[in-house]
Every structure is written in structure tokens, then in C-alpha cells.
């Protein structure tokens, strides 16, 4: 790459956050998506969003191709072979959602040695030569408490709904919540496991409610807000502010309450569209931008004013999704520096 385009890249990644600086450098680059599993709605949404966003990028000439490959069985050795095939097919970058954090390392190293950019997301790989776009679950916990602190500066009582015991994600989100509560006026007066499922959360909350003082808010992990609301609605308590997790049933309940009594809350979760963030990060690396190896994906947060739109765009039984743009990728890169 010439010095001029390098300068342009630097300018692009620092100053031109609002513009769309698709430099000519990547117009003949080909990017592949290596995916290990397509059997649930999250993965289906992930692949659909990939097609939408990369299809447009190919049409606009930003990249030459962005093909998605899914292995037929969810097996690491098969995905390793798939990545080796991609090396042979001459892709310039490979975006990976990995079946195993370690078992693909050999194939990923082969790709790096062949000069291919490897960006892993969601299911990340530990091979140092690859980029990782991970989810900062701790931040997800902190964000909830920070939102509540703006709503209730004087603090109050919180009920915490946790996820599945013993799972890394549950520990991280909860640690983030407790960390943020530490420095605030809030106190956590109760904690139950909702297993990220509405029915489990409803039973657990109904069980603990009689022993609790008045609640200001409920902090959650996603997939449990609607169940908590059902349990509390069955009593004569005032409805506390329940933080939601972007599920369609949660958003629908929130919209209903909003119409009835102006209920206010926030909702946050990880969007399946993070595959497209990985795509743009790969494009930026190919473009010559200096990107740190460890990136974190911003959450998809739904605020009061964006609720109706988000609900309208989320199919029943699914999760709110978003497709990321080049600007989002640049913001994520900037945040990691």
C-alpha cells in the first residue's frame, strides 16, 4: 500500500467517523464467513444479517465477495478443514464463529501464515495471530446499574435475576452488576436464578417476592424480564423498573405498559448481527487500519424512544437484531485503542 493511502486510512479511522470512507484498496478483496452451526434462531438471524450487509457491500464495490460457509456438523475438525479450504480458495480475510476456542488454532495459524486476516467473533479463537471480537458481559451488568442510577439518583432496592448457575456469562454479568452497585446508592436485596428463561424466572421471582421490601428496580440478564414482570403483576406491588433483554415478548410487554401508563425502562443484549461488525473490522484491517487484536462488541440497547421501531422489526419469538455499519466498526476499533 502506498504512503498516501496509508495516510488516508489513518485519517479515515480517526477523523472521518461520520463519512463512509470505502477506499479502493479492498475493492478486489474477498472475505469468507466460516460458521460452525446454523440450528437456532440467533444463528439464522446472524446469517441473514451477514447476507444483507455484505451483499450491499459487494454491490457497492467495497469488497469483491463475502461468502458464508456453514459446516454441516458442529465439529471442530470439520471447521478446521473448512478454513484450510478457504485458504486454498484464496480469500483475503476469514471471519470465524468457532466451534472450539482452541481446536481451530492450527488451521487459523496456517491462514495467518498464508497472509490471510482472521477475525473471530462470538465463538472466538485463542490463536494470537487472529483478531477477537468478544462480548464484554461485565459491562452489560454495569450498564444496567448506570442506567438505573440516572433514573433513581437516590438509589433504592434492587432484585437481581441471574442466569444459569456455573456458566461464565452468568458470573460476568453478575460481577458487573455488583461492581457498579458497590459505588452507588443501590442495595441488592434479593437474588434468584432465572436461567435466561421466562418461565423459570417467573417461578423464581414469585417465590422470593413475599420476603422482599419494596423494589425500585429489577436487574436481569436477558430472557427473564417478561417472566419477572408476570410474577410481580400477580401481586399488589407497584411495578418496579425491569431492565429488559431485547426478546420480542419482553419488548411487547414493555410497549403495552408504555401505552397504558407511560412505563419507562431500557433493554440491552447482544445482537446476532455482530457477524457484520466482524465483517467491517476485517474490511478495515484489509484496508490497512491498525486494529487492536482484542475488540469488544457494543450491546444493542433499546431506549424508550426506539421501542416501537425495535418491536416492529423483531419477529415473534426472536431477538432484536441490528446490522452494523462501517462507522460502528470504526467506533469499536477506536474504543479498543
Amino acid at each position: 500500500m502506498s504512503t498516501i493511502s496509508k495516510l488516508l486510512c489513518a485519517a479515515a479511522s480517526t477523523a472521518m467517523l461520520a463519512a463512509s470512507p470505502s477506499l479502493a484498496d479492498t475493492s478486489d478483496a474477498r472475505i469468507a464467513l466460516s460458521n460452525n452451526y446454523a440450528g437456532n434462531s440467533w444463528r439464522q438471524a446472524m446469517l441473514e444479517t451477514w447476507d444483507d450487509v455484505t451483499g450491499a457491500a459487494v454491490e457497492a464495490g467495497t469488497v469483491a465477495a463475502a461468502d458464508a460457509f456453514t459446516t454441516s456438523e458442529n465439529q471442530a475438525t470439520e471447521q478446521a478443514a473448512q478454513i484450510q479450504n478457504m485458504i486454498l480458495q484464496g480469500y483475503d480475510a476469514i471471519v470465524v464463529n468457532a466451534a472450539s476456542p482452541t481446536a481451530l488454532n492450527g488451521a487459523v495459524k496456517e491462514a495467518c501464515d498464508a497472509g490471510i486476516i482472521v477475525v473471530s467473533f462470538d465463538g472466538i479463537v485463542t490463536e494470537p495471530c487472529a483478531w477477537r471480537i468478544a462480548v464484554d458481559f461485565k459491562q452489560m451488568g454495569r450498564d444496567q446499574v448506570e442506567y438505573l442510577a440516572t433514573r433513581y439518583p437516590d438509589g433504592g432496592n434492587l432484585l437481581e435475576i441471574r442466569g444459569l448457575a456455573g456458566v461464565f456469562v452468568d458470573d460476568e454479568i453478575s460481577a458487573g452488576i455488583h461492581e457498579a452497585v458497590e459505588g452507588s446508592n443501590f442495595t441488592i436485596v434479593g437474588s434468584v436464578h432465572g436461567d435466561w428463561a421466562q418461565d423459570v424466572a417467573q417461578k423464581a421471582v414469585a417465590g422470593i417476592l413475599p420476603s422482599l421490601p419494596e423494589l425500585t428496580a429489577v436487574v436481569t440478564q436477558g430472557g427473564d424480564g417478561f417472566g419477572a414482570a408476570q410474577a410481580i403483576a400477580a401481586t399488589d406491588r407497584d411495578m418496579p423498573t425491569i431492565v429488559m433483554g431485547n426478546r420480542q415478548d419482553e419488548l411487547a410487554w414493555w410497549a403495552e405498559q408504555k401505552a397504558a401508563n407511560g412505563y419507562e425502562t431500557t433493554s440491552l443484549s447482544v445482537a446476532p448481527g455482530m457477524s457484520t461488525l466482524a465483517f467491517w473490522v476485517a474490511q478495515q484491517i484489509l484496508d490497512g487500519a491498525e486494529v487492536p487484536k482484542e475488540l469488544s462488541v457494543p450491546f444493542l440497547t433499546i431506549q424508550q424512544d426506539g421501542l416501537d421501531e425495535a418491536l416492529a422489526n423483531t419477529p415473534e419469538g426472536s431477538v432484536a437484531n441490528v446490522s452494523y455499519s462501517l462507522d460502528d466498526a470504526m467506533a469499536a476499533i477506536e474504543a479498543a485503542r
Binding site: 465439529q75 471442530a76 472450539s100 482452541t102 481446536a103 492450527g106 490463536e127
Partner: peptide, 17 residues
């Protein structure tokens, strides 16, 4: 041989075999 190629292991690495 598999570990030599993948450089690290996973308890489910070779179920297909």
C-alpha cells in the same frame, strides 16, 4: 497427530472419527 496439527485440544475434538 491431531494435536500436532491443531496445536491444542478440546475434549470433543475427534467425535466424528
Amino acid at each position: 497427530a491431531l494435536v500436532g496439527l491443531t496445536t491444542s485440544a478440546d475434549a470433543n475434538i475427534a467425535l466424528r472419527y
